[in-house]
Structure formats: C-alpha cells, structure tokens
Amino acid sequence: MQTKKFSYAKWGYIFSIPFVVAFLIFSLYPIIYTAVIGFTDLKGLGMTDIHFLTDDPFRNFKTVLSNPSFQTAFQNTVVMWVLNFIPQLGLALLLAAWFTDKRSYVKGQGFFKVVFYMPNIITAATVAILFKALFDYPMSPMNDLVISLGLADKPIQFLISKNVARAIVIFIQFWMWYGYTMVVLTSGILGISPEIFEAAVVDGANRWQTFWYVTIPNIKTILLFTFITSLIGGLNMFDIPKLFLLGGPDNATMTTSVFIYNQAFSGSYLYNRAAAASMIMFVIIVFLSSILFYLLRDKDEAQMKKASRRRAKAEKVAVKGGK
C-alpha cells in the first residue's frame, strides 16, 4: 500500500501546478510588496526612492501598535465579529438541520434555502444605503415607527449612539451571512452518506441525538472551514463598516481594515504604516487560526479517517445492494 501510494506522489505535484503558477504570476509580487514596504519609509504618491528603516526596522509596527485608533479598531473588530458570528452559526446550523432532516420534510424548503441566501447577493453599498435610510434622523421609517408606537415623542438620533451603530453593523453582518453559512453547512450535511442516518434511525436515535452525535461529528471538517473562513472574513471586515457610517460615529464601527484603508488612502498615503498594520493583522489571524486548527485537529483527523472508513463500508453495502 505504502509503496503504491509513493508512486502516485508526482501527481500531487502535477495537480498543484496550476495553483502555484497562478499564484506566482498574480499574487506573489503584491504580497512581497506588502510585506516589504512595512519596513520602509514609503509614503505619499509616486514615491520612487524608498528607504529601509535601518535604525529601527520595526518603527512602523510600533507606531501602529501604539496607535489608539488601531487599538479601538481592533476591539471593535473582535466585538463585532464575535457578536455576529455566534448567532449566525447557531441559526445556520438550526436551519441546515431542519432542511436536511429526512424524517420531517419542511414543505417549501427549496424556496427558503434560496431566499435566505439572497441578502448576500445584493451589493454591500446598496445594503449600507438602505440601512442608513432606515435609521436616519430626523426623518426615517424607523423614527416613524418609534413615534407612531408611542415609544418616543420626538425623533431619535439612532446613529449617533455608538452601541446602536455597532448593533446595526452586527445585525447587517449577521443578516448578510447566515444564509451563506447555512448553504455551506447544508452542502456538508448532504455530503454525509444517507446510510449513516439510516443506521441512526435503526438504532432508535431521536432527532436531537441524531443531530448531535451523527450530523455534527460528520461535518466537523466543514465546521472547521466555517470557523476559519469566518475568522478571516470577520477580522478583515471592511465593506459594511466603511460604507455604512465610514467607521463612525466616533470610531465606534471602525474595524482594522477600515483603519488600514484610512492610513493608505485618506490623505496622507501612509502606505508603510498601512502595510505594517496589514502584517500585524496577518500575524494575529494566523495565530488564532492555528489555535482553531489545533483545537479541532486531533478529533478532526481521526474523524476524517473514521468517516472515510465508515463511508467505505457504506459504499460496499451500497454496491452490494445495487447489484
């Protein structure tokens, strides 16, 4: 077995060639560029003579880390990610479980699955404009509602409050992405061999037990994907915070990506500081992802093997049955 696998090793390399070639052509230069200019004095437009900071190579990194706005931005980013990701994952899991439950078919689930993903196909700019209009002051549908319900006697300036602004960004993120997460998880659940579920039914497992002991362990690999991509996406959150309130009010919705963008484009063209901040975020994300990988690793690998074995068994059964 071992020797046989070895002989196929070259195909591993061959099949990776397209990815590597495309990466070398399109991404290598931009990435090296970003990594390098963090150590230089590059700022301003059309600068051609760039100097490395020889006296203190990490000056830009220190400047960024001690920058109060960066610290605020980092806190905001973490808070807004965690608070939108937990309910998002919960709801997505729930919906995915409902829609893949073979025992009770939800009528119209095809329709629901399609519809729930739809907030994701509208551009972020449109979403931002709509929500801004919804909560505007002094005239907006939300203010009309609040006043007609008698909750307030004069218009409320919703978006001046830091917490309200943050809550709305969290809601938008949640609302735009739970459908996506649901689709990902659903596809993961549908990848599980039906025989496993059938076996669970035979064993007399109820719905909750099936979900917890069969579905969840079998989509662990996909869950890891969801965690990691959401972590990356969450810590790089940009569109909505930037387009909705420009990171305001009073920096309440400024994320690290908005901070990086502001460093690079809002007047001073501090490309070096922006690049340093990018690299700092990169290190943080790598660190956190490694933890996630580590936490889910052993079980993950074991799970993969087990699933593979289980599947193989099921396959044999299926092949026999088919014949």
Partner: peptide
C-alpha cells in the same frame, strides 16, 4: 488523494495566503 512530501507545507501555505488582508495587497496588484 496523494501522499507527497510537500503536501503539508503546501496546505499551510495556501492557508496563509488566504489570511493576508486585502486592502494593501491590492495596491501592489
């Protein structure tokens, strides 16, 4: 599917590429 020597490093490399924030990298592109 395949077992090859650089498989693990290659996967880690792909993951790392995925984690690079886009805003500044775009300038280079």
């Amino acid at each position: 599917v395949y077992e090859w020597r650089l498989k693990k490093p290659f996967f880690s490399f792909i993951m790392a590429v995925m984690m690079i924030p886009a805003q500044v990298t775009m300038i280079g592109f």
